[in-house]
C-alpha cells in the first residue's frame, strides 16, 4: 500500500504539490489524472526518489520511501519523456534492466517483444514514438517489480497495441498482485483498466474514488411522465443534472440504482430508460458538484 500524507513540493517559488493526501491499495491499478502541469509527473518522481519532497511523507508497505537499492528494487518507473541510451537496441536495454533488477524476466520480455514484432537488434533511436513506449513498458513490466509507475502510459500507442498492453498490465497485476499507478491527462485511456481514479488539481487530490462504486452509484436516465414535469418532481432523488428537452428529460442521479428505479416506476413514466455513463461524464458531474468545470481541470 502507498500512503501519501500531506506531501508538498515546490520548484523555487512555484508550488507544485501542496498538502497532497492519497492512499493506494496494494494490488490495484490507480489512475491519476490531471491537466498538464498538475503535478502528476512530480508526484511519481518523488515516489521514485528522483526528486526530493519538501514536506510530508510517502510510505510504501509501511516504510518511508528511501534511496536504498533494496527498496527501489520494488519500484519501476516509465517516465513521460522516454530515455534510451544512444545506440542501444532492445537487446541492450533488456541486458541493462536485467543487470539492474534482480527479478527481471528476460524471457518474458523477449516473448512480448516478439509478439509485438519489435526488432530486438534495431536501434531504439530509430523506433517510432509508439514503439519506444512499448519497449519501455515491456522492460518495466518484465522487472516484476511490486509497484509500477507509468507516466502518460499509452502516449503514442495505437488502440490495438494499447489494448494489448492493457491486457499485459492486467495480467501482470493478477499474477503478482502488483500495484500500478498510471497517469494520463486523458480519462478515456484509463477508464477500462483502472480500479481507482484520482484527480490531481492544484497540487492536491481533488477527487478520488474506485471506479466500480463510481459507476454503480451514478446513473443517467431518460424519462417522460406523460404530463408536464420539472426538476421539482425529482427532489427526493440526489440529482446531479437535469436537462429537459420537450417532454423528455435527461437526469443524472447519484444513489442506489435499485431503490431509485422502484420509486421512479411508481411515478408511472411513459419513458424510463437507464443509460450507461462514461467515466468522463461521471467526472464532469462530480466536478460540477464540487464547483469546478471538469474541462478546465483535465
Amino acid at each position: 500500500m502507498i500512503k501519501i500524507t500531506n506531501l508538498s513540493k515546490s520548484y523555487g517559488d512555484k508550488k507544485v504539490l501542496e498538502g497532497l493526501n492519497c492512499t493506494i491499495k496494494t494490488g490495484s491499478i490507480y489512475g491519476l489524472i490531471g491537466a498538464n502541469g498538475a503535478g502528476k509527473s512530480t508526484l511519481l518522481r518523488i515516489i521514485m526518489g528522483i526528486f526530493q519532497k519538501n514536506e510530508g511523507s510517502i510510505e510504501i508497505d509501511g516504510k518511508e520511501i528511501s534511496d536504498d537499492e533494496e527498496f527501489k528494487q520494488k519500484l519501476v518507473y516509465v517516465p513521460d519523456d522516454l530515455f534510451f541510451f544512444k545506440g542501444y537496441t532492445i537487446n541492450d536495454m533488456v541486458n541493462f534492466y536485467n543487470n539492474m533488477y534482480k527479478t527481471f524476466d528476460k524471457e518474458f520480455a523477449f516473448k512480448l517483444f516478439d509478439k509485438l514484432k519489435l526488432d530486438r537488434k534495431q536501434k531504439i533511436q530509430t523506433f517510432s514514438k509508439g514503439m519506444k513506449r512499448q519497449t519501455a513498458l515491456i522492460c518495466a513490466i518484465a522487472t516484476n517489480a511490486d509497484y509500477m509507475f507509468f507516466d502518460e502510459t499509452f502516449d503514442g500507442i495505437d488502440p490495438v497495441i494499447r489494448n494489448f498492453m492493457k491486457k499485459i498490465i492486467a495480467e501482470q497485476m493478477e499474477k503478482k498482485e502488483t500495484t500500478i499507478i498510471m497517469t494520463s491527462h486523458n480519462l478515456r485511456e484509463l477508464e477500462d483498466i483502472c480500479d481507482n481514479l484520482g484527480l490531481l488539481h492544484k497540487g492536491g487530490i481533488l477527487f478520488e474514488s474506485d471506479i466500480d462504486s463510481l459507476k454503480t452509484n451514478m446513473f443517467k436516465i431518460q424519462i417522460s411522465l406523460g404530463r408536464d414535469f420539472s426538476e421539482k418532481d425529482f427532489q427526493n432523488f440526489n440529482v446531479m443534472s437535469f436537462k429537459k428537452t420537450g417532454s423528455v428529460a435527461t437526469v443524472i442521479m447519484k444513489g442506489e440504482r435499485e431503490g431509485y428505479e422502484k420509486v421512479l416506476q411508481e411515478m408511472n413514466p411513459v419513458i424510463l430508460d437507464f443509460l450507461p455513463l462514461t467515466l468522463e461524464e461521471i467526472f464532469i458531474y462530480e466536478m460540477e458538484v464540487l464547483g469546478y468545470e471538469f474541462n478546465e481541470i483535465v
Binding site: M48, G49, I50, D68, K72, L75, P79, D81, L82
Partner: peptide, 12 residues
C-alpha cells in the same frame, strides 16, 4: 529525461 531514467533505477 536521463535523470528520470537513471534516477528510477534500483541503485542509490
Amino acid at each position: 529525461t536521463s535523470v528520470d531514467f537513471m534516477g528510477s533505477m534500483p541503485i542509490s
